[in-house]
Design a protein around this nucleic acid. Structure first.
Length: 911
DNA sequence: TGGACATCCTAA
DNA sequence: TTAGTTAGGATGTCCA
């Protein structure tokens, strides 16, 4: 029988570990396969007589089953030969952590390896099985199900990997609980009962796509509402439904931090007074539990995957708030039904419309959670990451990149006879963090500030991974500087030394090569994919490969990594910095000019003659960051091309020519790529710019305004700023309409200045700022506006928003520091408090727009318009003033001076 | 008043 | 068992 691996763990059978693989078969049955015979082990290296040491260890620890002398490489550093080590096999997986410290003490200068590898991962790695991968098992062994809650239980030591792309028909379930708090505050599990639970199912459960359990008799409800008088009965039914439905994926919104811990604690409270609740939710008889690990709750359910939609959405979408209400509205365009916490008690006690509304509200919440997971395809990426990295789905969903990188490297290390380091202790990590002060990053070129036309965007494809591949940078190739002959090493600008690949090909470069090859072939398959499901899986796969490719550099400089090499990390970035500098030099000096003739791009020395219709394109680098360069194309006289003289196709010809020249100068597989052509680019500062960009598609070009770093993409600015700036950027980039921009800003400023709360309700909405409440209030050294609001809310409601939440606030009118005048928008609305319009004009509107329009000589005085104060800065200025504006612009940057000289650009300053 | 520092959030 | 990296801009507080 074939099944897809969802989860894995082990149990003890007559004092021997038996691995359990949980999964779902292609015909939709849940499966548990018991695999006996796999043994836990670890390694140690020491000087002296290993045979003798082995005997000593075996005599001392009776949990040691076997000791063997083997040959292995150490994890870090190039080594010419393997060295003898001891492989210690124990009876039980838990013996390994039990004895590792004592064993380590016996070694003196020696070390232990792989003593902290979870047994299930050890099994997956050694056997070559992958999370969400397919395996085939013999089913002929008859096995009693015992406490296992699966359709099929089997036992097999002979499992084989199966090559299959499609996923099994998985079952998804979302749930959400409602509690009855004391008096509008936060419910606490010791006193506040769970009064409702809602479920949503995909596929449906006994014909129901949702079910609501209610601790109350209610009349006139649908048949998918089940009613209980006892909370314990309701909860027992909750667990019964889960085990009966037998979902593979359990989801919900904020379930890890709220619903699951609440249920667990509530069950405990009820059982203390004889509730008799058995909270079995997994595929074995263990009861529901959670673990708190420093402000973070981890939930795992045997045989299933727990997916809290909240952290996934946080990670994947940049939103101002992550309440279920806001997320549904922004991402699903669906409204959350609402019963305010303060009104819950009233709704609950009602026996008519209100209680039915409350039930619908509860139902909608689990519906939304499931919809988020399925419609936004949140899980696709994680399933692909599991299949590519081999890590179990639960671990890709709730873990970080470290998990996956280490799993991949450990698999490869195992194959090459190399042992893996243990995780560093706190002291080591702290030391490494200190060392990391010497880790330098990418280079950011000083932008040629101002507005430019005809800019080509070139970027390096997977820069850091290709640097590691091209230069054989690896933990396994790094050597102490000066210890190997020049001809055998590659030296980075940061003075890191690595043996050449013909001496030893690094594990990381090989792994990256494999990942890159897979990505290329996956993209090929995507072009041929016929059905949508297959395309979706392939697309997620190539994305997962990209994520993994880009994880290795960060991992190499991560203080808590099993493998850490400052020398390697620094070499990657130093080569990167050298590379972008060299690229700039090639583009500006070595190439300098491109000749366009008959739709072909030539270097100046590739043409011997000069023709009438040649188009000479002069190149300069206007900006660059880490792996990209913006190449400004101008005519031979250093001026912008006249309207229509330089087409997108010309951009592409030049861009591809330049990219190929640069690529040819680089070691394989480093590659500079033509990414897009920008008609206009506005460079404000490093990491802050806007482009009107045209990306090549199969049949032509796709244009958009792309904004990086400016206030429109920052969540700590209000919507008013974003909207105003977006309009200004569009006018400037697409129309070159400075005049219109100024008019637009003046209009908005005037509206805000004379804000009518009734009439301009839409603007009031747009004045809300948000900031992330990122740490405990006591560790803030300065006052912060959102902290003021957090304190206000806590004082009024007794509930403090959770750390990590984004806090909305507005600035109210009054005297003193602005932080003290930050207030909860909700509270302001209810109490009709006046906002500080001056703050919004002076701090939110004018500075960002001045940074943009200042490029064209527009100053704050021009923008700061007040219709009630006629005369002074009236928009229809005198001719003399207009001249002054243009002159100021000309005096500005060199670029804008050049633009001002041109006829085509004069309209920009005609206001 | 002005510079150091804290804080936030983004680019890559 | 449980958190990839540095570079950099902008704002506002704190304190000399």
């Amino acid at each position: 029988m074939n099944f897809q691996i969802l989860d894995a763990d082990y149990f003890r059978e007559e004092d021997r570990p038996v691995v359990r693989l949980f999964g779902r078969s292609d015909d939709g049955k849940s499966v548990c396969c018991l695999v006996p015979g796999f043994e836990p082990y670890f390694y140690l290296s020491a000087s002296g007589d290993l045979q003798k040491l082995g005997q000593t260890i075996k005599d001392r620890f009776d949990v040691v089953k076997d000791i063997e002398v083997v040959e292995r490489f150490e994890p870090i550093g190039y080594q010419e030969t393997k060295q003898p080590m001891l492989k210690v096999t124990t009876f039980d997986p838990r013996n390994v952590p039990e004895i590792r410290d004592e064993v380590a003490e016996m070694l003196g200068g020696g070390k232990v390896y792989e003593t902290d590898i979870l047994f299930r991962n050890r099994f997956l790695i050694d056997k070559g099985f992958k999370g969400m991968g397919w395996v085939s098992a013999e089913t002929d062994t008859d096995v009693s199900k015992g406490d296992l809650l699966c359709d099929h239980v089997m036992r097999s030591s002979e499992l084989t990997e199966v090559d299959r792309i499609a996923n099994a028909p998985l079952k998804y379930m979302a749930f959400d609980i409602e509690c009855l708090p004391h008096d509008g505050g936060m419910p606490t599990p010791d006193v506040s009962p769970i009064i409702m639970v809602s479920f949503s199912f995909e596929p449906a459960y006994k014909g129901h796509s949702t079910i609501v359990l209610v601790k109350k008799e209610v009349e006139g409800v649908d048949d998918d509402v089940e009613m209980f008088t006892e909370e314990a009965d309701l909860l027992n039914r909750f667990f019964e439904i889960i085990t009966e439905y037998d979902p593979d994926v359990i989801t919900g919104y904020n379930i890890n931090d709220f619903d699951v811990p609440y249920i667990v604690d509530r069950v405990k409270t009820l059982n203390e007074s004889g509730g008799g609740i058995r909270s079995v939710v997994g595929r074995d008889s263990r009861q529901l539990s959670y673990r708190k690990i420093i402000s973070r709750t981890m939930v795992s359910i045997p045989g299933r995957v727990v997916v809290d939609a909240l952290p996934l959405i946080r990670q994947q979408f940049s939103l101002k708030r992550y309440t279920l209400r806001n997320v549904s509205k922004e991402l699903l365009d669906r409204e959350k039904l609402d019963v305010a916490p303060a009104d819950m008690e009233e709704h609950w006690n009602d026996s008519g419309e209100k209680i039915r509304k409350f039930i619908d509200y509860a139902r909608r919440d689990s519906e939304l959670a499931l919809e988020l997971l399925l419609k936004l395809k949140l899980l696709d990426k994680y399933i692909a990451l599991s299949r590519v990295s081999g890590v179990l789905l639960q671990d890709t969903v709730s873990g970080g990149q470290t998990n996956m990188v280490e799993h991949i490297l450990m698999t490869e290390f195992g194959k090459q006879g190399r042992v893996m380091s243990t995780k560093p202790d706190d002291e080591t990590s702290a030391f490494r963090r200190k060392q990391n002060e010497n880790l330098k990053g990418g280079a950011v070129l000083e932008p040629e500030k101002g507005l430019h036309e005809n800019v080509i965007v070139l970027d390096y494809k997977s820069l850091y991974p290709t640097i590691m591949m091209a230069h054989n940078l690896c933990y396994t190739t790094v050597v102490k500087p000066g210890t190997y002959p020049e001809e055998d090493i590659i030296r980075s600008p940061s003075k890191g030394e690595f043996v050449k690949p013909d001496i030893f090909k690094g594990v990381v470069p090989s792994v990256l090569e494999h990942l890159l090859d897979q990505r290329i072939s996956t993209k090929q398959l995507m072009k041929k994919a016929s059905d949508e499901g297959e395309y979706r899986v392939l697309d997620a796969t190539q994305l997962a490969l990209k994520i993994l490719l880009n994880s290795f550099y960060g991992y190499s400089g991560y203080a808590r990594a099993r493998l850490y090499s400052l020398q390697m990390a620094n070499s990657v970035t130093s080569i990167g910095r050298g590379n972008i500098a060299r690229t700039e030099d090639i583009v500006c000096n070595k190439i300098g000019r491109i000749i366009l003739r008959d739709n072909v791009a030539y270097l100046t020395d590739e043409v011997s003659d000069s023709r009438e219709d040649d188009k000479v394109v002069k190149l300069s680098v206007a900006y660059g960051d880490t792996d990209s360069v913006f190449v400004h194309c101008r005519n031979d006289c250093d001026e912008e091309f006249a309207e229509g003289e330089f087409s997108l196709e010309d951009s592409a010809l030049v861009g591809r020519k330049v990219a190929s020249i640069v690529t040819a100068s680089l070691p394989d597989p480093m590659e500079l790529e033509f990414e897009a052509a920008a008609k206009r680019v506005l460079l404000i500062a490093k990491k802050r710019y806007a482009q009107w960009i045209f990306e090549p598609t199969n049949d032509g070009w796709e244009d958009q305004i792309k904004v990086k770093g400016l206030e429109t993409v920052r969540r700590d600015w209000c919507e008013l700023t974003s909207k105003m700036l977006n309009r200004v950027l569009e006018l400037v980039l697409k129309e070159g309409d400075i005049d219109g921009s100024v008019r637009h800003v003046r209009e908005l400023v005037d509206r805000v200045r004379n804000l009518d709360v009734q009439k301009d309700a839409d603007i009031v909405e747009d004045l809300v700022l948000t900031k992330s409440f990122s740490k405990s209030p006591s560790s803030y050294k300065n006052k912060q506006p959102h902290l003021t609001v957090v304190e206000n809310i806590q004082r009024r409601t007794g509930v403090r928003p959770a750390i990590g939440e984004r806090i909305p606030f507005v600035i109210t009118a009054g005297k003193g520091l602005f932080v003290d005048r930050a207030e909860d928008p909700e509270y302001v609305r209810e109490h009709n408090i006046t906002l500080d319009v001056d703050y919004y004009i002076q701090k939110q509107m004018l500075p960002p727009v001045e940074r943009i329009l200042g490029v064209f000589g527009v100053d704050v005085a021009t923008l700061n318009h007040d219709s009630k104060q006629k005369g002074l800065f009236d928009f229809d200025r005198s001719p003399e003033e207009k001249v002054e504006t243009v002159r100021r612009t000309c005096r500005g940057t060199e670029a804008s001076a050049q633009q001002a000289d041109q006829k085509t650009q004069s309209s920009l300053f005609d206001f």
